[in-house]
Design a protein around this nucleic acid. Structure first.
Length: 825
DNA sequence: CAGTGAGCGAGCTTCCGCTTGACTT
């Protein structure tokens, strides 16, 4: 029998296809691209029609050799790489490298991996589409020219190791421009007014109805006037409006939406989401995770239908096929869905199980009925102020539909308060219980999170499912540090609160933290400098529409309307002129701002980007003369070269501060690489507690911290002849004993910790982590991990049910736990 | 764990998109 081999891109895919094709074919994988431009040089011959010089990717030599010998043995080679530009190019490179005839090698495509789709594809082989390959070559050559030429310009004009490119520079621009908007934002204060009315219920009880004034008041005077008028006002219901509302389920996941939902609901970074999804894919639980298509195969739809009808009943079923939104989508795959819809749970780790559950719910919900709601709006008027209208809103769920299974998370927390309304009638008079005017301030636009940046990039058609996560990682990479991901505490702001109750207006001031954020992307000074430079000299390329424009050209190449070299030629001519002009005319960027003079020394204070990051400098090299070095102080993470003031700079320069001697050794407070610390003598360093301001630390405070440090140096007690130490770690206080870290129970604070209590905690730990016993001749071990207490048997982990303590778990219960989980699988 | 920061200048860096391991902890 003739031997046939088929080559696909992914080994997991190869395995599945093999199953469907049976013994006719051997299925091999190329592991993605096998050939590319050389890494250490431009590798595009500009003089000779932009001819690319390809080489086998060094890490793919082994795969290529294996493919070569497999091809030698075979009578027929079939190519089944993905149905898109990149997939077509991979097939072409395979032909070139494996010596296959481009015209005669059968090439098949399918965009779902089901038995029928594959069998159908095998019936309709075609040959490689060189027009599509050329579109890919144009894409590749353009990205290389833009990327390497721009990066080299940055090395010469700003500093080495920096990079720029069609995708990363636009992503960076988005973050930088958002950062600037926030810097320039001036918050406006306003007053938000709510009223609390009493409503008689039928049973003689009173219910409360909260309504919100439908506009914001500009100042305190306006708020006060309204509350004054409310003292003698009558309130009437003017209108009750009921509107039906339908909510549609969201489409099944693609890469970008999975990253967004996993970020909001599970708190995953985009990299973590992709790592976990990859693992689920390799285990065969989900379809391919790098996709831009919302398409579901017929077999999947049928399986989802069965699940919906089984679990929820016919009335919850509403089949639909979704349309992919993005114009840039290449749709080589299905949406991300479970491979077996009847599996509600899959995955080994907790991360995998949580992500799988999310995918399962979203997939099933996509074929469920719309939710039907009724929205009621009540308008209440005020007799003494015709302009004032109070509004209460409530939503009643008439039919839950898909909401029974899946609720999409929203990016910003919902602020509107939706209450259940008591029975109400038009013209009904409502007694006022209380009216509150609370001062608020407007918020600047939100900084991007990883996931919201992905969403924006996708809207702009920039980047591909396989590059979203790596692009973001690249912006944060150490060699560039264009962007940092940080959580920041807000700053306290005082707000006035006016409350009218029982005819009296009470005024109070409350303090609230404004602008706290978790895991947001912040532009750094070097990020801003690079964007400014690119915008000034290469506006066309960092323009948000650049990718969309060149994509149109690539489409024309794919349709055979234009040659790829022509597209590159048209772009490169003007680009090269701009490059030459920039290299000649632009000076070397030295980001430096003179802030003023230090009143004590008369020396100039400068803010600048040094080799090791943004800093302020006291005295210039000229001022100080031969052999003298200026003093430097690094900027704090929330400061920027663009906005730092002389006062802030002088404060930064006030450290290191000498605080006298203690026990004959110098005490100094300073800020270092790892935050603020106290140095005592030559080699004792004591970090300040988190959040403490080093500029406020005086001698008394320093000695207090040294005292505490000395106490912690001594063991608090000993257990089984080994010392117990109290330690302070990132996640709070803990005990160290026998090289093990033991967390303190929440109800024990470090101050009230006595020797007896410490021994007790260690004893408890020892009791609950020694093996519990044996099951089938293997020990059952116990331990406390990141996600709580667990038992471990036969190299597998079993989480304890919520609330169960390790020390109270009996052997019988443990065995039952193991049996139950084993039975499930 | 707790430094550094200019100039001088050789030698290094870099893109986007398609795929997973082979290394550590």
């Amino acid at each position: 029998m003739a031997k046939k081999i088929m080559i696909v891109e992914s080994p997991a895919k190869a395995k599945t296809i093999k199953k469907y094709l049976g013994s006719d074919f051997e299925v091999k994988s190329s592991f993605g691209h096998i050939r590319d431009l050389k890494k250490n040089e431009l590798s595009v011959d500009i003089e000779h029609g932009f001819k690319p010089h390809y080489e086998i990717l060094p890490e793919k030599r082994k795969v290529v050799n294996e493919l070569k010998s497999a091809v030698k043995e075979a009578d027929e080679v079939w190519l089944a790489t993905d149905e898109d530009r990149e997939g077509e190019a991979i097939s072409w490179h395979l032909c070139e490298v494996l010596g296959l005839d481009i015209e005669r090698t059968p090439r098949i495509v399918f965009h779902e991996i089901t038995k029928s789709a594959i069998q159908k594809a095998v019936q309709q082989p075609r040959s490689i589409d060189m027009k599509l390959v050329d579109a890919q070559q144009a894409r590749r050559v353009l990205d290389r020219l833009v990327g390497y030429k721009l990066s080299e310009t940055l090395w010469r004009k700003i500093r080495g190791k920096l990079s720029a490119g069609r995708v990363q520079s636009v992503a960076l621009r988005l973050i930088v421009e958002r950062e600037r908007e926030i810097q320039q934002f001036q918050p406006k204060h306003y007053y938000k007014v709510d009223a609390l009315f009493e409503v008689e219920k039928g049973d003689g009880q009173k219910a409360l109805l909260k309504a919100v004034l439908d506009r914001r008041l500009d100042d305190r005077q306006g708020a006060m006037e309204l509350l004054q008028k409310a003292k003698n006002a009558l309130f009437h219901i003017k209108k009750i409006e009921k509107k039906p509302l339908t909510k549609k389920p969201p489409p099944p996941f693609i890469t970008s939406t999975l990253q967004q939902e996993a970020s909001r609901k599970l708190g995953f970074s985009v990299t973590r989401t992709m790592r976990v999804a990859q693992s689920l894919y390799e285990s065969g639980w989900i379809t391919y995770m790098r996709t831009d298509s919302v398409h579901l195969s017929d077999t999947a739809l049928q399986a989802i239908k069965d699940v919906v009808v089984d679990e929820f009943g016919e009335e919850y079923l509403q089949m639909r096929q979704y349309q992919t939104k993005s114009k840039m989508a290449q749709e080589a795959h299905e949406a991300i869905r479970p491979t077996y819809l009847d599996r509600k749970i899959a995955g080994n780790t907790q991360d995998e199980q949580r992500l799988y559950e999310l995918i399962w719910k979203r997939t099933v919900a996509s074929q469920m009925a719309d939710a039907q709601l009724e929205k009621t709006t009540v308008e209440i008027t005020m007799s003494t102020e015709p302009e004032a209208v109070f509004r209460a809103e409530a939503e009643v769920l008439r039919f839950d539909g898909f909401l029974r299974l899946y609720q999409a998370a929203s990016e910003e927390e919902e602020e509107s308060e939706k209450t259940v309304l008591p029975p109400l009638e038009v013209n009904q008079q409502l007694p006022l219980r209380e009216m509150t005017a609370l001062e608020r301030q407007t918020k600047p636009p939100a900084r991007y999170s990883e996931a919201s940046l992905v969403k924006k990039l996708e809207e702009l058609g920039i980047g591909r499912p396989s590059t979203y996560a790596p692009t973001i990682a690249k912006l944060m990479d150490k060699n560039r540090s264009y962007v940092v991901k940080e959580s920041r505490e807000g700053t306290p702001v005082q707000f006035e609160k006016l409350v009218l109750r029982d005819g009296e207006i009470e005024e109070t001031t409350i303090t609230e933290k404004v602008g706290s954020v978790r895991n947001r992307l912040f532009a750094t000074d070097i990020g801003m400098i690079v964007v400014d430079f690119l915008k000034e000299h290469f506006e066309e390329i960092v323009n948000y529409g650049f990718t969309a424009e060149v994509e149109e050209k690539f489409d024309e190449i794919a349709r055979g309307k234009i040659k790829w070299q022509e597209v590159i030629e048209t772009f490169y001519g003007p680009f090269q002129k701009t490059l030459e002009r920039t290299l000649k005319e632009a000076g070397r960027i030295k980001a430096e701002r003179v802030l003023g003079k230090d009143p004590n020394t008369g020396l100039t204070v400068v803010a600048k980007l040094t080799r090791v990051g943004p800093a302020v400098q006291l005295g210039t090299f000229e001022e100080l003369g031969e052999g003298q070095k200026p003093r430097f102080a690094n900027l704090k993470p929330d400061q920027s070269l663009e906005t730092i003031t002389l006062e802030e700079a002088l404060q930064l320069l006030s450290l290191p501060k000498y605080l006298g001697e203690f026990q004959g050794k110098d005490v100094v407070v300073n800020r270092g690489r790892y935050g603020p610390y106290i140095q005592w003598g030559k080699d004792t360093y004591i970090s300040l507690p988190k959040g403490e301001d080093p500029y406020q630390v005086d001698r008394d405070r320093a000695l207090e911290l040294i005292g505490e440090y000395l106490r912690l140096q001594q063991p608090i007690a000993s257990y089984r002849d080994k010392p117990i130490f109290v330690m302070k770690g990132r996640y709070g206080p803990y005990l160290k004993w026998d090289n093990k870290n033991i967390k303190l129970p929440k109800d024990i604070s470090i101050d009230q910790l006595t020797a007896e209590v410490a021994v007790g905690v260690v004893d408890d730990y020892v009791q609950s982590t020694e093996p519990l016993g044996e099951y089938e001749g293997k020990p059952i071990e116990r331990g406390i991990g990141r996600y709580g207490p667990y038992i471990k048997w036969n190299n597998r982990f079993y989480s304890l049910p919520k609330g169960r303590k390790l020390s109270e778990l009996t052997l019988e219960e443990a065995i039952e736990l193991i049996q139950r989980k084993t039975a499930k699988e």
